[in-house]
Write a protein that binds this DNA or RNA. Sequence first.
DNA 1: CGACGAATTGAACCTATTCAAAGGGTGTGG
DNA 2: CCACACCCTTTGAATAGGTTCAATTCGTCG
Lengths: 251, 251
Amino acid sequence: MMQRRKSPLDIKTTEPHQCSVDVRLKILGKVPFFQDLSATDLKEINLLFREIGFAANETICFAGDPAERLFVVADGRVKLMRDTAVGKSVLFDLLTPGEFFGSLSGSGDDVYSDTAQALTPACILTIGGDTFQQILKRYPPVALKIIGIMSTRLRAAQERIQRLSVSTVEERIAHVLMVLSEKFGQPGKDGLLIQAPLSREDLASMVGATTESASRVMSQFQKDGLIQAGRGWVAITDPDGLKALAGSDLE
Amino acid sequence: MMQRRKSPLDIKTTEPHQCSVDVRLKILGKVPFFQDLSATDLKEINLLFREIGFAANETICFAGDPAERLFVVADGRVKLMRDTAVGKSVLFDLLTPGEFFGSLSGSGDDVYSDTAQALTPACILTIGGDTFQQILKRYPPVALKIIGIMSTRLRAAQERIQRLSVSTVEERIAHVLMVLSEKFGQPGKDGLLIQAPLSREDLASMVGATTESASRVMSQFQKDGLIQAGRGWVAITDPDGLKALAGSDLE
DNA sequence: CGACGAATTGAACCTATTCAAAGGGTGTGG
DNA sequence: CCACACCCTTTGAATAGGTTCAATTCGTCG
């Protein structure tokens, strides 16, 4: 049984990343809650954002620190996570360009709920929470959009709670692979390649399992011809088979 | 070892409940996202709400049904839950007067994410999702408040995910009892009585465990003098002891 | 090429579930 | 108003799924 073991991901693991001005505007235009704004408004808002580059594995903000800023991913992959006292960490979300995290409230009296870490070299746009609050007041449609996004995120969190409550580790891993392939999947000769450098430990912390359990399940999936995987990468070769295992509809 | 076994809850388990007009106004004034509004605005908004009474165990809305309305609890206790294919259900939240659930978006293209059920006789205020959307557009501060509330809920959901991922059943039950006592606790001779008729099954579905496991843990807690409990009720006698077991700070 | 760290695999252990049966409040009907 | 029946709750014993600990293999990067 011979198969490719070298990482097929096309992601540069080098220095911090800066993005050009026109890329910035394009990104801001793609941010869901700015989509309804006119080009002029957007240009004005663009000026309020600052840009920061991060190298892979650099931390963007720490859970528990005073939350003063809102961040928007312009380029790269960012993971939202939280470390626990016992050493185990929990991975909440994986963000792509256009998604946001950090503080939405102007009152600087709360803290970041997650630690944000660059999974790849990343370019981040950032704005003060109070400044963003001004934008919200000035452009009501933006606030409405955000409410919608928060609803969606809450729903996703609830589904995850449900899966942690009723599904086995195998089912949860099958499911998270499906979700990841929908968001990061890129067709290639190995199947749907998940364009994000995810370790077994990352996967494990997304489904509430240990690294070893994740590894065991992944090995089995590979033997069963459902996936191809190596160090830091996964590709789905049999989506339907996986979906069946995931029990995708809990209803 | 003699102890009270009869339910000490003071909750009428009788017919649906209607509330008077002045009670309605008082409730709407207590709703977090209406707090900044003037009395006149509030009175006007009050007219847009309809009132419905529910008997205990009646279902207010079903997960999966087209989401057309927003609901506000005026009186009673409401549980937000979801049934799964395998019969196990998951309890997401327990609401008291002033809290809301249902549809926030005007576009009626999504569905209720939870089933809402009256745990006690309840009075519910309700408004069409589209009408509420008008309110949001007209009173921007309301939208900002809602964003804050959604953030808080999302954070709570994340904490729950974390606990499901890293804590044991015992720790999770200890923790949920602490949380419940903060929200529903009422000092009495048995300790902090949780004013909500919760079965072992309810508790179990809040922490992702089986009824039997919940029962075992509760029995142990009682033997250890941490709680007093009977059929459908719990009182906390040793909050500090429980908090220690819960490992309340995960950091 | 060499070394470090990720990934894999095995075996023992443990927590929590499953299946089963008995005990005890609650509220309903007589 | 009491008694009975139902269902919630409790407890036991066996089982299984997952973790833990430990050792080995194998990519990847310097």
